[in-house]
Design a protein around this nucleic acid. Structure first.
Lengths: 187, 187
DNA sequence: AGGTCATGAGAACGAGCGTACACATCGGCG
DNA sequence: CGCCGATGTGTACGCTCGTTCTCATGACCT
């Protein structure tokens, strides 16, 4: 008779980029299933990694969530600021904003969902609130490249509301409606 | 010797309003600790009621959450509509909106928190999304009493963004800033 | 070449969860 | 008055969770 089958121990893998990959996988899981469903085990499954690996690379789940959201905010904030910096004047800046909203955010459900999920999580988790604050201040600073501070703040709130509406409404606003709303404010 | 102490079974209580009380207690727990922390056991503790009582009155936790949010939305929506209906003209309606935002929503952290928590929960729970949709459509209809549909929709999004900003920002906008933003749009 | 230690793997623990269920109680109706 | 079904109570089950721990492995340094 043959020996009993081995306990199917997974082969050890040399994986120097694992920590990095865990961050991006975490963002994927959040986008797909929400923060509430983002557990160590869900991430481990998605990254095809043993459970223990997560707490080895990140002291706690909160730390991992924070790292993931920080990366996401960095990406979006940098993209917005690059575009705003490139805009020659106020009118162009408004167009940039329209494009930013209709093209990137509303275009990809992913960025939209991540934004809302971050808002949610931050409401109860102080560690994540720092990330939200960072996002808000960077966003506002980008807007102030071409708008006065008062207008910038108001546009920022409007944009936030548009994002939220589009994420939750069954009939999101069209690009034309968004352009009209922004022009009314800052055009 | 005396008999062993009774197993401390809680006295049965005649409590005809319990179902009703569970709804309001659920809202309290959500406001205090967030939807994510709102479990059967947390509600039972807060309402001083045994665990089994919750599943007796509500078939599932989702059903209880839905009932609670529905009640909250009804309250806020009715209050807003009453005030909008009472406004004689567009200018008065804008003032009503300012008061609605600065006085009620932003004044009480409670309503603010409940709004954000509902947004969050609805993003993943279809049963709750119906409640959000109801809130959005009723809110928009109230605004349309004095504003044209396009403006109403934009103001609605702006208000949503203002609520979100105020819920999460460490330096929320002042009443004067909010008034200025709304006037700019609909004044 | 050999030893070491960062890294990887898997099992286990204790807690909290939603839900189901068996049993106790009693207001209200026949 | 006597029962019965609506209501109230406590416990148990099966599950998932975050975290901890032990042990294996092999890349890198001397």
């Amino acid at each position: 008779m043959s020996v009993a089958p081995a306990p199917a121990r997974r082969a050890r893998r040399y994986d120097p980029e694992r920590r990095e990959r865990l961050v991006t996988t975490t963002l994927d899981v959040i986008a797909a299933h929400g923060v509430a469903a983002t557990s160590h085990r869900a991430i481990a499954r998605a990254a095809d990694v043993p459970l223990g690996s997560l707490t080895y690379h990140f002291a706690s789940l909160t730390e991992l969530l924070s790292a993931a959201f920080t990366r996401h905010v960095d990406t979006v904030a940098a993209r917005l600021d690059d575009r705003m910096r490139a805009a020659p004047d106020r009118a162009a800046a408004v167009e940039v904003l329209v494009e930013h909203l209709t093209g990137d955010l509303l275009g990809s459900q992913r960025d939209l969902v991540l934004a809302v999920e971050l808002y949610v999580a931050a409401a109860r988790n102080p560690a994540l609130r720092a990330v939200t604050q960072d996002w808000m201040s960077r966003s506002r600073r980008s807007l102030e490249r071409h708008l006065d501070p008062v207008t910038a703040r108001e546009v920022d709130a409007l944009v936030e509301g548009l994002v939220l509406h589009s994420a939750l409404s069954t009939e999101p606003m069209t690009a034309a409606q968004i352009r009209s709303a922004l022009r009314r404010f800052a055009g």
